[in-house]
Amino acid sequence: MMNQIPEVIRTVPLEYYLYFSTALFVIGVIGVLTRRNAIVIFMCVELMLNSVNLLLTALSAYRSDPNGQVFVFFIMAVAAAEVCVGLAIIVMIYRNIRSTDVQLLNYLKW
């Protein structure tokens, strides 16, 4: 059953994965650049990470190289940890300034 996953993945052509993950990544980047809410920015960051995960999985399947999938697990683990810390920070920020607007956070200016 598990062996068939790569085959299932391979039913879709590689280009589609590439386009899709690029699109996801760009959406993430644009989201980070344009949105002001810290939580949305955070979600966009996750989106970028997942686009990379998708690409790694796809390539791993096409090239029959499990290393790619190992990396995906690493990334997911790191992302989980990151979410913990990141969300905690955002909560702290919200408690302090009653907002999650990143534009207000310019204390490091000059």
Binding site: V32, L33, N106
Partner: peptide, 17 residues
Amino acid sequence: LRYAQSGVISFYVLVMV
């Protein structure tokens, strides 16, 4: 050069991208 340090994170990210 310190004026480049605006404190606006999205600006940093934009520059980075």
